[in-house]
Simulated scan of single mutants.
Amino acid sequence: MSTHTSPRKSPRKSPAAPSPLAVPGAKAEVLHYSAFTTDPAGGNPAGVVLDAEALDDDQMLAVAAQVGYSETAFVTALPDSRPGSSGTGPHPAARRYRLRYFSPLAEVAFCGHATIATAVALASRTGTGDLLFDTPVGEIKVGTTADGGPVRATLTSVPAHSRPAEDMHVEPVLRALRWSRDALDADLPPHIAFAGNDHLVLAVRSRAQLAALDYDFDALHDVMRQYGWTTVHLVNRAAPDRFDFHARDPFPVGGVVEDPATGAAAAAFGGYLRTLGLVTEPVRVHIRQGEDMGRPSDLYVDLRPDDARVRVTGQAVPITAPGE
């Protein structure tokens, strides 16, 4: 792993109450969740602010920087706009909210693991059911259920797709990863995949090579920023006839060495598999991520050949705020 210092902080295992963060002109109560896991020591931590009405952009960024996770989500309840309503209260039927995401460095258009964490936090407060999030990339529907255990959430992405990556995209990334072209899986060619934001997808033939990832943080950061990629989604397929993958997602443009679970990349990867023509009937894809960095995560991606939208399912559990 890169020796670059990551702003991510290590959560403890026991759940705790929201932590108050003071920012200039406002205070924010931050919930801490780990998404795509049932173990607080696994998954990808996210901050969730359920009452962000009083925060402006600079204050949201300041909160995200203080929290230090790859993303913190900010929720604003939208008023009831149905005919005959006063327009001053929340919409109880649709359970509709505005949702924005900030890394410690900048706003992010879409974040899957923070969406799952937010949905679980809202379900824990108001009960399970369907939620609608207005995000910078469009409307995201999330269904939540509970069967006596942690809440499970399924987000439906915007239409996902991908396009072949060119040599000018791939070669500098391979140099930053210290990989050769020969390491790549010829059956899964490099693509730029989209499901709200762009991710470069690179499939490697060797599981051991994926596990040994040690990349040049600054070099990869510069290439990703040049092309506007959110992560580089590195995958290894368990077997040619299976939809089981291991994944790693460097995230230097967010100030983080690596994400242990990346729902946005998983959704984009679903669009990639459809684009390649590998989805000829409804399938469920299992992505195991975070294992090589000690925070194992499980993401489940449901695909249909006749639907460009991708459904990503996972659980989330509360964790103790770092430093408490």
Rank of each mutant, 00 (worst) to 15 (best):
T5S: 15
G43P: 00
A16V: 02
E53R: 13
A41N: 11
A46W: 05
D39Q: 09
A46H: 05
D51H: 12
S34F: 00
D39F: 01
Q66P: 01
S6W: 06
Q66S: 08
A28E: 11
V30G: 10
A22K: 14
P7M: 03
H32I: 12
P40A: 12
L61C: 09
G42T: 04
S6V: 04
Y69R: 04
V67H: 05
E53Q: 12
N44P: 03
V63Y: 09
H32L: 13
V63M: 13
P7K: 03
A54P: 01
V30Y: 13
E29V: 03
G43M: 07
H4Q: 14
A62M: 10
E71Y: 07
K27S: 15
K13E: 09
Y69A: 09
Y33N: 04
V63W: 09
K9Y: 00
A52T: 00
E53D: 12
P24S: 11
S70A: 15
A41M: 14
A64M: 03
A16N: 09
A17E: 13
D39P: 01
D58K: 14
G25V: 14
K13A: 15
D56S: 02
P18I: 10
Y33I: 06
H32Y: 15
P24Y: 06
R12T: 13
Q66A: 14
A35C: 10
V23W: 15
Y33V: 03
P11A: 03
S2V: 06
L31A: 11
R12M: 12
S2F: 02
L21I: 14
E71V: 02
P18Q: 08
K13C: 06
S70P: 01
A52K: 02
E29D: 15
V49E: 02
T37D: 04
L50T: 03
A52L: 03
S2N: 07
R12K: 14
A64T: 04
S10Y: 10
